[in-house]
Each structure stands twice: as structure tokens, then as C-alpha cells.
């Protein structure tokens, strides 16, 4: 089955059902800059290698860069690969992209020892700020990698249909607890024999009311549902100021 229209579940702020593991994650990091103004919203993007995290980052930036001040921090397995992609494609000016080296362990850098990432975010604020939005991409490793609340205010977990339609069923902290689950590359579903209906059902079983969206970034405006979600988060973030 092919879903023509990517679906989101904006009712995410509804009361959590018993299966839902936690409410939208407020970051434990201070929410103000040293000068007392509210800092940028930080959104993490995790998920397996090749699922489309960098493509998602690029698409979000292209959609929002005119109206928002955005910066990106990449956490690569191999240094700078993602950062180089974003640079080559002129998604953002070079001074708005920072690559953190992770010693072959991106999940350590985004979850267990976030010091290098925090420094990268603060340096970007200092050099090109004030920023509205910082996207932190994790070099993909596995399904268990999640972002620390000390680093990001919300996280998106990106999987793709090519990885097999079993991934949502398998679950793992990324799939089941991310603030937004993106199932990407729906354009490939017929080719790889992935059943999107099954994926949606399994995801719901894992995630309760937490939103899931299906995307095909190859299609024009395929990023729209993710951008809508980001806008919503931003609105909440500014409203809370």
C-alpha cells in the first residue's frame, strides 16, 4: 500500500495512554542564554544510517531558513561527512554548520557525554546567533540511540521503509519514545515490499499517541509534515518564554 498523503498525529498533546512512555520531553538544559534571553529550540534527529536524517535536516533548513535563524550540529561516525553534504548542497552557510567528532560512537556524544555537542551549540549561538532553531543530527548507529534531555528539547527518529517494515514492531527507545517518528522513503515501499499500513499500526502500538509521519523526500514538499511539526514545537517553545 502506498500512502499518498503523509500522515501526522497532532493529537500528541492529548492525555497519554498507558502505552505511552513519556510526555513530550522538556530539556533539562537551561532554557536561557547567559544574557537571560530564551535560547534556540534544539531538536535532535536520530535513526539508522541512511534512513534520511541528513536529507530531512536539509529539507527543514530549506523550508525555514528564510524566516528563522537556523544552525546545524552533526555527529558523524566518520568526521564531517554529513556536514560536508550540507555544505556541498549549500543548505546553510558554512558558519552555521558544526561537526562534532564522536570517537566512533555518536550515541555516546548525543546521550552519555553531551559536552562536545553543548559546546558546539553554544559556539554557534555565539558566532552566528541569536538562533531560533538548532538541529542536532546523530550519525546513525542503531535503534537504541536517543538524545539526552540535557542536549535537545525534542527529538525526531527517522527510519525508512527500505530498512524493512518490521522496524516499528521491533521498537527500541528511538522508535517508541521519540517525540516524532518519521517513516521515510515511502516512495520505495512498493519496490521493497514494505506494508505502510502494518508499519503505522505497529508504530501506534509502540508509541501510543506520540505522532508518526510518513514522508517521501524525493517528492516536492515531501518534508511538509515534518516542517509543520517543527513549527508547532517552535510555537510551544516561544509561548513558554
Amino acid at each position: 500500500m502506498h500512502l499518498d498523503h503523509p500522515e501526522t498525529y497532532p493529537q500528541r498533546y492529548a492525555a497519554a495512554p498507558s502505552r505511552q512512555r513519556r510526555a513530550p520531553t522538556p530539556s533539562s538544559a537551561p532554557t536561557t542564554r547567559p544574557d537571560g534571553t530564551r535560547r534556540a529550540l534544539r531538536i535532535g534527529l536520530g535513526g539508522p544510517v541512511g534512513s534520511g536524517k541528513t536529507a530531512t535536516v536539509a529539507a527543514i533548513c530549506r523550508q525555514l531558513r528564510e524566516e528563522l535563524s537556523i544552525a546545524v550540529v552533526t555527529n558523524d561516525i566518520y568526521t564531517r561527512e554529513d556536514a560536508e553534504f550540507l555544505l556541498r548542497n549549500a543548505v546553510l552557510p558554512a558558519e552555521r554548520i558544526s561537526a562534532v567528532e564522536t570517537g566512533a560512537c555518536p550515541h555516546t556524544a548525543i546521550r552519555d557525554d553531551i559536552s562536545a555537542n553543548l559546546e558546539a551549540v553554544e559556539d554557534l549561538e555565539e558566532s552566528v546567533g541569536p538562533l531560533d532553531l538548532v538541529l542536532v543530527e546523530s550519525g546513525g548507529d542503531n535503534l537504541t540511540a536517543t538524545f539526552s534531555k540535557g542536549l535537545v528539547d525534542a527529538q525526531i527518529f527517522v527510519i525508512d521503509v527500505a530498512g524493512g517494515d518490521k522496524i516499528p514492531r521491533k521498537g527500541g527507545p528511538g522508535v517508541s519514545t521519540a517525540d516524532l517518528l518519521v517513516v521515510n522513503k515511502t516512495d520505495l515501499a512498493p519496490l521493497v515490499g514494505a506494508d505502510l499500513e502494518v508499519m503505522a499500526r505497529d508504530a501506534r502500538a509502540q508509541r501510543g499517541e506520540l505522532p508518526v509521519t510518513f514522508t517521501a523526500l524525493t517528492e516536492p514538499d515531501g518534508i511538509a509534515p515534518v516542517v509543520a511539526w517543527v513549527r508547532e514545537r517552535l510555537a510551544c517553545w516561544t509561548a513558554a518564554a
Binding site: 562534532v100 570517537g103 560512537c105 555516546t108 556524544a109 552519555d112 557525554d113 559536552s115 562536545a116
Partner: peptide, 11 residues
């Protein structure tokens, strides 16, 4: 070794 001071990314 898990003290979160960045050492893990350095060889």
C-alpha cells in the same frame, strides 16, 4: 571513563 567530559571522542 564515563565522566561526561568529552574523553570518549579522543584516542
Amino acid at each position: 571513563g564515563r565522566f561526561p567530559a568529552g574523553g570518549h571522542a579522543h584516542s
